[in-house]
């Protein structure tokens, strides 16, 4: 087990951050941590890294207690913060050099590799960097010491689609090397592309913990149909727009289609449920 939390709780005074989070992440897993803004994703990550003291529960990373052995944990961990704030007055080169020296296991070869994938202007001061460049630098510093685990807080915000693809490919390669990754996001399609397993957090509570495959097998079809009459099928909620009726069918497809046959169908589209729609449907 790389990460294990037991009822991890963090209150900021009376304000809830996270509540009774219990989950575990195995070695080599890419774990997607999904939730809307303000759900507690960042609080979870910052608590795991020891920036915040938990107000309840326990958490272990590499079997080490986050409250007692955080330094040993950080030795083998990388982190990409949600809001990337780097030392603006340093050049990227100086910044990487500074952080490299703070880590015993800094890997020069790895850094070279990373710089080839994520090119950044090394001699320019970071304050002159664009958001995307900063994000790349954030990725580089998180991986340059070959960590066993990397915690990422919305790492793809600020990356253009091309770079996002590059980043995902990179993560897949890292996974092959047995690295474990924890990625928070509020975008389902993003998590869907890369994760093995997904935890869903809402209002500080973990409301779902599933394999991505299991999640996808929570199948269903989205049916969009254009009919002359107004459709009514018992037990199914209909959405209507411009003469099209949309609804989700999760079971008894046969039954629904047969009922539809009673209407005058002008047009019909049937598609797979996206993960987003799965969540909307199952976990709301």
């Amino acid at each position: 087990m790389i990460i294990e939390t037991e009822n991890l709780t963090k209150y900021y005074g009376k304000i809830r951050g996270i509540e009774n989070l219990s989950f575990s992440i195995e070695k080599g897993e890419i774990f997607g941590f999904l939730g809307p803004n303000g759900a507690g994703k960042t609080t979870t990550i910052r608590t795991l890294l020891g920036f915040l003291k938990p107000t309840g529960g326990k958490a272990f990373i590499f079997g080490k207690d986050i409250e007692k052995e955080i330094l040993e944990i950080k030795e083998m961990t990388g982190y990409i913060p949600g809001e990337l704030n780097l030392y603006g007055n340093l050049t990227a080169k100086d910044f990487l050099d500074y952080f490299g020296k703070l880590r015993k296991n800094f890997d020069e070869k790895k850094l070279k590799e990373l710089l080839e994938i994520f090119e950044v202007p090394l001699d320019r001061k970071i304050k002159g960097y664009s958001r995307g460049m900063k994000q790349k630098l954030g990725i580089i510093q998180a991986f340059m010491h070959n960590p066993e685990l990397v915690l990422m807080d919305e790492p793809t915000s600020g990356l253009d689609p091309l770079l996002q693809g590059k980043f995902y490919d990179f993560l897949r390669e890292e996974k092959k090397e047995g690295k474990t990754m924890f990625i928070s996001s509020h975008i389902l399609t993003e998590i869907e592309k890369i994760s093995d397993r997904v935890g869903v957090i809402k209002d500080g509570n973990l409301i779902a913990l599933e394999n991505i495959e299991a999640l996808k097998s929570k199948k269903g079809k989205v049916v969009k149909v254009k009919t002359k009459e107004k459709i009514k099928i018992r037990g199914i909620k209909m959405g209507e727009e411009n003469g099209w009726t949309t609804f989700v069918v999760t079971k008894n497809v046969d039954d629904v289609i047969k009922k539809l046959a009673a209407y005058t169908i002008e047009d019909i589209e049937i598609g797979e449920l996206s993960l987003e729609e799965i969540f909307m449907h199952y976990y709301r």
Partner: peptide, 14 residues
């Protein structure tokens, strides 16, 4: 204030 503390503290330094 500049929130660079996040980055600094992510290193194995107490």
């Amino acid at each position: 204030e500049n929130k660079t503390i996040d980055m600094l503290l992510s290193n194995p330094v107490s």
